[in-house]
Structure formats: structure tokens, C-alpha cells
Design a protein around this nucleic acid. Structure first.
Length: 424
RNA sequence: GUGAGUGUAGCUCAGUCGGUAGAGCUCCAGAUUGUGGAUCUGGCUGUCGUGGGUUCGAGUCCCAUCACUCACCCCA
């Protein structure tokens, strides 16, 4: 490690060697989401701080201690820590609800950086990237099922294996407060035997006790009342419909009554997909329904559902053999000054024909040029020297097989393009 | 914010009891003046994370600090 300046803590350069992994993730996502009618939305990374304290929750860790804020004159701005609130802000600002027909909600996705001032660890950066989806303008359980089926299919297409979908309902404004009360009541006489974290959680956010990792506590909690059995009629019906649709679509899930999402705005359905190989941060994506958020942010009473996927986490799980190898079509091997001069224009003509070409910027020994062609993973080497120029025919060598043919310039393009399918 | 581990060449790492800074890979040149991958020979590359202290002498010991990694909290 050298140099005087370094990247900020928790932030990373994505170098050319890794960029292919990211492009594969992004391209696969865009193509797959398009099949479900999702369209991309891009919003600014900078927003009013209040947007997040209103939506994510002023008491949440994200707002309390993890935001990058900028005081600019009278305004408090911040780098977005998540993107549901900005997307909803844009939805409201542009009156998008006016274009929604019953049964056809607005389907949006985004890809971009988020910022949270946290202590970095495996799978957690201060600048990280999310692929997120928001469905606005429908409360049908099919929305959950279809959207989850979509992302389940995406992970399959990316070759990400050993994943588990966990599903729960956190109820609504009718049944959740009642359950919360019941849980606190149940916990109170048992807290003495439980860990410090649980005692603190019981005060601040009782549902979080289910996140506890202490064996003894988990045994106690196994008998705790669950949200599931406390759901009101509407929530219960919604939840069972979501599950029925998921079964129809063949998406396996496990119910996890202890699933707690960190953001205040969730109602009813919440879910998470966890994977092995990610260390302690094993959630690759999570989300839920947020009926009420649009109204909270000053819009009409439009229901919503969405999730966000951590791109760093997803990228880590894509098997190497899934990634297309970036290859250059042809590397020019020049011999002598005349060959090098002629190659300059040859490169231009081939590139105009849609072929990727590399060549040395200076005359170099032939052995060296071939070595570079190899290292640069070129498919072909094309020899250009005075003999070839005199004959008007060039040696085109397949670097994998070693086979070399004499071919005129007119035949080069077709031959090189044909080599794309044949070669590994 | 808390705890633990690690910082030596572009990369991966060795460095004994405190005594002149090392290896492999990469890179460059050559063996090979018009044919690559293998092999061989030679070569370049260092504020030893940073600052201070102890010492005749510090990569090595002590203190501080910064960064990275993992974990906690929390989250994607």
C-alpha cells in the first residue's frame, strides 16, 4: 500500500479486475426485472435529512447515529442511507399515483450507492450499493408473492445457492401495538434471567429480543407469544394469501415469527433472504410492505411494498464460473516500422467493424508482443510485417489452438467474429 | 461506540536472542534478429503504517496514533 492519500474508511475502489462481477450483477438484474415490467428510477444521493427521520424513524439507529449529514445554510441535508424514502418522495412529488390503474401498480427499481456511518466489517461498508424494488399503488398479496418470486429467480440466475427465504407478518396499526404490549407483559417477569442486550431491547424495541443469539434466552423465548397468533383478521388473511401465492409459484419459504426489520415503516409482510458465506451479516436482501409511508411523506393514501439487496453481499456470492471472461478479439503483432505504421490504421478499420483490438504503442520484439497477447487474453494474434503487406495476406493465429492461417483483410473480420463463438 | 487480531516490495508472505531488508509471484531484459504459454539466467521495486520512547544500535522491545480484518450493537 503506497501513496499519500487513501480511500476513506469503509469505502472501496472497485478495480477493473472486479468490475466485471458488478456489471454481470447489474446487467442480469436489469434484463430480469424488465420481464416483470419494472422500470428504473434514479434519484439524487443527497436529500433533506427530515425525509429519513420521518420515514425510517427518528429513533432508529440509522437516523440516530449513522447518517452523513451536511448543514448547508438553513438546511440539513444528508447522503441517503436507504432509498425507499427518496423513491416515495419522487413518486409523490411527480404525482405518479394519478397514472395508476387498479390492479396495475407502479413498478420501480433502482441501483445505486447508499451511505451509513458505521463500523465496517465483512459485508458492511460505509458506502455500499443496493439494488432495490418498490411497488406502489396496490395492496394485493400477489404483489408480495410476485416480487419475491422475481428476486428469488434473480438469485437463481446469478448462481447464488444455499439461500433461505424467511417470512413473517408484523401486523398493522390495529394488531401490532396490542402484541407489543402482550410481549412486554410476558417478558417482564423473565428478564432477570436474560442477557443484558435483551433487557435493553425490552425497553427500546421489544420485538428485537428475537434477534438474541444467546442459547438460554432462545430457549426461554421459544414459549413467547408470537405476532403470528396475535394478527388481526385482515392481517391474518393477507398473510395467508401471500403464502398461498408463494406456494403456487414454487418459492420455498420458512416462517420466522422473530423476523424483525429495522425500519419503522413496515406493516404486515416482512421478509429476508439469508445466505451462507457472508459472515455475521448473512442477510443478502430484506424488505416488506409499507402501507402508510406514502401518506406519511405527504402523499395520497397509496400502499407500497419493496425490498433492497446489498450488492456487495450479492456480488460475493456469485460463483466465479458464472462471470463472462472479458476477452479482446485480436492483438496486433507488428514487425518493423512499416508493420507498426500499417497496424495503426488496421486497428482503426477493425474497430470500426466492431472488433476489439489491442496493439503495442511502440515497436516491441515479437516474442514480447505475443506474450502480451496471451496475458491480455486475446483470441487471435494478427501478424503485420513487410512480407504480409507485400502479399496483402496476414497471418491470423488462434492463440488457444495455435493454428495459424493466411488470410486477406477482407476475410479477417468474418473470421475473427466467427472465433468468438468457437473459442472458450 | 465496544472488543480481539493484523500492518514488511505492485500481490502473497518470511524475518531467530535487538546487530547491513528477504523469498515466491508479477514486472523488465536476455537465452530466442519473424511466432506466445514451459524452462533457465540476470535485473528493478521498500518513508518495515505513522509519530515518539528505550538502546551504542529497533522491522524486532515500550507508548501513542492511524488503517485494515473479524465480531458486538445494528443493518443490505
Amino acid at each position: 500500500m503506497s501513496g499519500r492519500y487513501r480511500v476513506l474508511r469503509g469505502m472501496h475502489d472497485i478495480l477493473p479486475e472486479e468490475v466485471g462481477r458488478w456489471q454481470y450483477l447489474e446487467e442480469t438484474t436489469r434484463a430480469w426485472f424488465a420481464r416483470y415490467g419494472f422500470r428504473e428510477i434514479r434519484t439524487p444521493v443527497l436529500e433533506a435529512t427530515e425525509l429519513f427521520s420521518r420515514s425510517v424513524g427518528a429513533s432508529s439507529d440509522i437516523v440516530r447515529k449513522e447518517m452523513y449529514t451536511i448543514e448547508r445554510g438553513e438546511q440539513s441535508l444528508c447522503l441517503r442511507p436507504e432509498n425507499t424514502a427518496p423513491v416515495v418522495r419522487a413518486f409523490v412529488e411527480h404525482s405518479r399515483h394519478r397514472g395508476i390503474a387498479a390492479g396495475y401498480p407502479e413498478r420501480l427499481f433502482y441501483i445505486g450507492p447508499m451511505f451509513r456511518y458505521e463500523r465496517p466489517q465483512k459485508g458492511r461498508q460505509r458506502q455500499f450499493h443496493q439494488i432495490g424494488v418498490e411497488v406502489l399503488g396496490g395492496e394485493e398479496p400477489l404483489i408480495e408473492a410476485e416480487t419475491i418470486e422475481m428476486v428469488w429467480g434473480l438469485l437463481e440466475r446469478l448462481g447464488i445457492a444455499s439461500i433461505e427465504l424467511q417470512l413473517a407478518s408484523v401486523g398493522d396499526s390495529a394488531c401490532r401495538p396490542k402484541y407489543r404490549q402482550a410481549l412486554v407483559h410476558w417478558l417482564r417477569p423473565r428478564l432477570d434471567g436474560m442477557c443484558d442486550d435483551c433487557r435493553r431491547r425490552a425497553d427500546e424495541n421489544p420485538l428485537r429480543v428475537f434477534d438474541c443469539k444467546v442459547e438460554a434466552d432462545l430457549l426461554v423465548l421459544a414459549d413467547a407469544p408470537t405476532m403470528q397468533e396475535s394478527l388481526c383478521g385482515d392481517c391474518e388473511q393477507h398473510d395467508s394469501r401471500v403464502k398461498r401465492h408463494l406456494e403456487t409459484l414454487g418459492v420455498p419459504f420458512v416462517e420466522n415469527a422473530g423476523l424483525v426489520r429495522g425500519l419503522d415503516y413496515y406493516r404486515r409482510t416482512v421478509f429476508e433472504i439469508a445466505a451462507g458465506g457472508l459472515g455475521a451479516q448473512n442477510a443478502i436482501l430484506g424488505g416488506g410492505r409499507y402501507d402508510g409511508l406514502v401518506r406519511e411523506l405527504g402523499g395520497p393514501d397509496v400502499p407500497g411494498f419493496g425490498f433492497a439487496m446489498g450488492m456487495e453481499r450479492a456480488a460475493m456470492l456469485i460463483p466465479d464460473d458464472r462471470l463472462p471472461r472479458a476477452r479482446i478479439d485480436v492483438s496486433l503483432i507488428t514487425l518493423g516500422a512499416a508493420g507498426h505504421d500499417a497496424a495503426i490504421e488496421m486497428a482503426q478499420r477493425l474497430r470500426a467493424q466492431g472488433i476489439s483490438v489491442q496493439m503495442s504503442m511502440t515497436e516491441r520484439p515479437m516474442g514480447t508482443q505475443l506474450k502480451r497477447a496471451d496475458r491480455g487474453a486475446a483470441r487471435f494474434a494478427l501478424f503485420i510485417g513487410k512480407d504480409e503487406l507485400a502479399r496483402g495476406r496476414f497471418g491470423l493465429k488462434d492463440l488457444a489452438s495455435g493454428q495459424q492461417d493466411e488470410i486477406d483483410e477482407a476475410g479477417l473480420v468474418a473470421r475473427i467474429k466467427a472465433g468468438r463463438d468457437g473459442g472458450d
